[in-house]
Design a protein around this nucleic acid. Structure first.
Lengths: 237, 237
DNA sequence: ATTCTCAACTTGTCTATACAAGAACAAATA
DNA sequence: TATTTGTTCTTGTATAGACAAGTTGAGAAT
């Protein structure tokens, strides 16, 4: 299956994003002007602007009429609230993963309060639980439910180091395009107390998430318990 | 101060968004095709597409090549995680507000962990605390800090019914364009216990938010305590 | 020296057009 | 009947150019 080349605007977006993320452009810097980018990449302004629009949307730059495109500061903390999976949200910190329950096929009738289609209910799901540690401290406990649909060898893959998002993208050409989430604060239940090493009244943040993908009708679901004592979740809106 | 007319793409966006929100277009419906919208509004495709791009970004529609623009379901719950203020995030439920501390001018050196500029520190801030109830149940307690900058009559306005966002938009032409937030789970402190009527170990969700606006260099800050026992926060990403 | 004006940048909005590619359906074909 | 092939709809990508409007800085006028 030959993957087609990404469109020009997306390649420019990826390139500029990388230059911001690796520090080539720093907070407050001006990006090259639209006309300069046009000349440098042999593109026209609407195409360049589309790439810049995406950077604005993702919070990487601001644009000021008459001034230019200004690089914004990267928000600190853990950006799990946006599109990225946990792995890439951590940033420079050291993330390790322990599989608590290996992927196995199960039946399901609901996924963390989100509605399932009849087709999803019928084919069942792949179920997996993981504990994730940042710098040796357990911070996330996630339960994942993925429709059991045409994912050869999925249950035997190694989820220790790589993110679920990355595996779906690389091996199955599935991109997460967006999703829905519910957030609430709860007391740690017995299982969470044990895994996080906290007392029974310790407040825990719970995210119920539905991830939608570029594959028509393919969504998957996660419930994430977070110990926000040391690492709070951050995001842009 | 005459407000200029909004650009065409924004007006089309607002119009379509309203038609989706008021139920004229329902989940699964197809919007008129781009060409039909062009003809109906005397616009060209790039302009129409810009409006549709915004709807995609805000999660109102999906687009499928060869098919059309499909209306998505509106997520339920309280959409405070996105751009809207609390008031418009509640939806159909009944929101009431009690002012716990009336707006007054204070000095500040920090705002909920966000960095302040020297200018912000120098001019001080307007400080206000409110308790907000949904269907008579206290759900939000918010602390607001707004730079004390050129907002005539601000401290004497009525914040009971209207949202801070709305007052800033209507009276001062200030639009919130985005922001940054941190989320964590905490135990209710004494003040929160009292206002929410909960015990001392009750888990509470805390949002620290920085709101950025169309006014150059003007940001304001909120810390929101949420009792998510009955109403969880929802959002799209 | 200070202020003002203007030219030369920047991004913002919009038009007009072209071709590619996916989806749906009808007609032709096996 | 079942399958294939077009045709025609849809959105996706990209070009080229025009004018509006905010910002900046150099040079002219005071």
């Amino acid at each position: 299956m030959a993957l087609k080349e990404a469109p020009h605007y997306r390649r420019l977006y990826e390139q500029l994003r990388m230059l911001i993320e690796d520090g080539t452009f720093r907070q407050g810097d001006l990006l090259p002007s639209e006309n300069e980018l046009c000349a440098a990449h042999h593109l026209t302004r609407p195409t360049v602007r589309k790439a810049l629009d995406m950077l604005v949307n993702d919070g990487f730059i601001l644009r000021k009429q008459g001034k230019g495109s200004i690089v914004r500061g990267k928000p600190g903390g853990i950006g799990i609230l946006s599109l990225t999976g946990t792995t890439s949200a951590i940033g420079g910190d050291h993330l390790t993963t322990r599989i608590i329950m290996k992927p196995r096929i199960r039946s399901w009738t609901t996924a963390f309060g989100f509605e399932l289609t009849d087709h999803e209910k019928q084919i069942g799901c792949i179920y997996m639980e993981r504990l994730r540690l940042i710098n040796e401290t357990p911070v996330f406990y996630d339960i994942n439910m993925i429709p059991n649909l045409n994912l050869p060898r999925f249950t035997s893959r190694n989820f220790e180091d790589r993110s679920l998002f990355e595996i779906l993208r690389k091996h199955y050409q599935i991109q997460v395009t967006g999703g829905e989430q519910k957030i609430l604060a709860i007391k740690a239940d017995r299982k969470i107390q044990e895994h996080f090493g906290v007392t029974k009244n310790h407040p825990i943040l719970r995210l119920d998430r539905k991830m939608e993908t570029n594959r028509l009708g393919f969504s998957f679901y996660s419930q994430v318990y977070c110990n926000t004592e040391q690492y709070s979740l951050t995001g842009r809106f």
